[in-house]
Simulated assay, not measured.
Amino acid sequence: MASSADVTSKTSIAMVAGETSGDLLAGRLLSGLRPQLPDALMHGIGGTHMAQHGFISDFPMEKLSVRGLFEVLAHYREIKAIQIALRDQLLIERPAVFIGVDAPDFNLGLEAQLKSAGIPTMHFIGPSIWAWRGGRIKKIARAVSHMLVIFPFEEEIYRKAGIPATYVGHPLAQVIPMVPDQAGARVALGLPAASPVVAILPGSRMSELKYNSVPFVAAAKILLQLDATLQFVAPMAGEAQHRYFNELIEQAGLRDVPVKVIDGQSHRALAAADAVLVASGTASLEVALFKKPMVIAYKMMRASWHVLRHMGYQPWIGLPNILAQEFLVPELLQDAATPEALAEALWKQLQDGAHREYLQRRFTDMHRTLLRDTAAESARAVLELIAQTPRAS
C-alpha cells in the first residue's frame, strides 16, 4: 500500500477527454488535482480548459470529436490508430492512474487494456446506462477500477454492479451561478437590454453543426416574423466551428438572418438569453442550470438515427428531462425537428410566463441537487485510488 507521501511523488497522470464538454469537466477535476500534484506530468488528449492546469495534449482532441455510428466509422482508422499509439505509450510509461473523461467508445476499450496490465483506471462521467445500452455496464466492470459519477442516482447503480463509485456532483453546478446576471451578460455581449434574446446552440462537434445549424437558424427566421425585436446569439466552440457554421448558413441562403455568432462565451450567451434552442447533450443541462426555458432538438445522419432510435429505453434524451423524469421541456428529434416545429415550440417557451417561472423553480432545485465541490471530491477519489494501488518497485 502506498503512503500519502508516495502519492504526491507520482510522475504522471494520463487522461483523455474527447470533446469540448469533456474538456471543460476535466478542467474542473484538474483544478483540484494539480495543487495536490504540482510536479506531476499530466498528459494524454484534452483541450484548452485542461491546458490551463499544465495538461499536455499528445494528440488533437478534435480528432475524437465525432458523433453518430456512421460518422465514427468514416474516421475509425484514424481514431483507432490514436488509441493504439496512446495505449502503447502508456503501457511503457505506466502512469499512476489513467482517467477517461466521457468519450466511452474510445476510453472504455483503452481502460480495459490498461487495467488488465495493472494500471489503475478511472472513468469520469459514466455512460448513460440508465438511459440506453444498459448492457455496457459489464464492459465498464472489466475496464474501470473506479467510477466518478455526476448524478446522484448513478452511485448505487454502479455499486450494485460491483464497480466502486463516487458521486462528485456535476462540475457545471459549481461553475454556473445560482442566479445568473442577465443584464451584465447582455452588456458584455453588446445586446440590447430591452429586446428578448434567444441563444442558439447547435452543438460543438462538426457533425452536430452539419445537421443542426440550418434548421436552427431557419427557425430563427420564422420567429423574427412573429417578433421583429428578437435578438439571436450563437456561441461557437472554436474558430473552426465558427467558420463551418457560417459556411452552412451561407449555403442555405440564410445569411440575412441576424444571428450574432461569437467565439466561446457560451455561458455568457445563456445568461443573456430569455430562451434557448439547444442540441441534446451536456449543453442542455447547462441551459437548465442557467434556469432558462428551452427547446431540445437533435438531427444526425439518417442511417445513424435508424439504428440509435431503437437503443433507448427511456422516453427522454435531454438531460433536464431525464433528471426530472418527465418532459419539462420539449424535445424534437430528427424529422420532427423542422424549422416550423422548432419555431413554434420556442415561441411557446417565450410567451408562457407562468411556465418560465415554473421551470426556474424546478431548475433551481435541480441545481442544488447537483452542487458539490466537484474539484475537491474528484481529486480526493483519484488520490485514494493511487494510494490503494500497489506499485511495481
Rank of each mutant, 00 (worst) to 15 (best):
Y158I: 04
T121N: 08
A131Q: 14
A85F: 07
I150Q: 14
F124N: 01
P104Y: 05
W130D: 09
D88R: 12
T166K: 09
G100M: 00
G135T: 04
D105C: 07
I163V: 13
R94V: 07
R94K: 13
A117G: 12
F98K: 02
L91D: 08
I137A: 06
S145Y: 09
A96P: 03
T166W: 01
A85C: 14
A117Y: 12
G109P: 08
Y158P: 02
P95Q: 09
N107Q: 12
A96I: 06
R133N: 08
A161Q: 12
K160N: 14
F124A: 11
Q89I: 05
P127K: 01
V149W: 00
A131I: 10
A112P: 03
R94F: 10
P95H: 06
L114E: 02
I119E: 00
I129A: 13
Y158E: 03
I129M: 15
Y158V: 04
R136K: 06
A103D: 09
I140S: 01
F153S: 08
L148M: 11
I140L: 08
D102T: 05
G109F: 02
I129G: 15
L148C: 12
I119K: 01
E155R: 12
F124W: 12
G126P: 02
P164F: 03
K115D: 07
F151D: 04
S116A: 13
F153K: 15
F151R: 06
I129T: 15
Q83Y: 02
R159L: 10
I125S: 01
A85Q: 15
V149I: 12
R94H: 06
L114P: 01
Q83V: 11
I137W: 02
L108S: 10
G134T: 14
A96D: 05
L90N: 00
S128W: 04
P104Q: 10
A131P: 10
R142P: 05
I137D: 03
L90M: 14
A103R: 13
A161F: 09
S128M: 13
E111H: 09
F153R: 10
P152T: 10
Q83K: 14
F106K: 02
D88C: 11
E155L: 06
I129F: 10
I129S: 15
G109L: 14
L90W: 15
K115Y: 08
H123G: 01
R142M: 09
D105K: 08
I163R: 04
K115S: 15
A165H: 03
E93A: 14
P120E: 08
A165G: 13
G126Y: 00
F106C: 03
Q89H: 15
K160W: 09
P120Y: 06
Q83C: 11
F151T: 04
L90H: 02
S128N: 11
F151I: 14
W130H: 11
V149K: 00
L110W: 01
I125D: 01
E154A: 11
D88P: 03
Q113L: 08
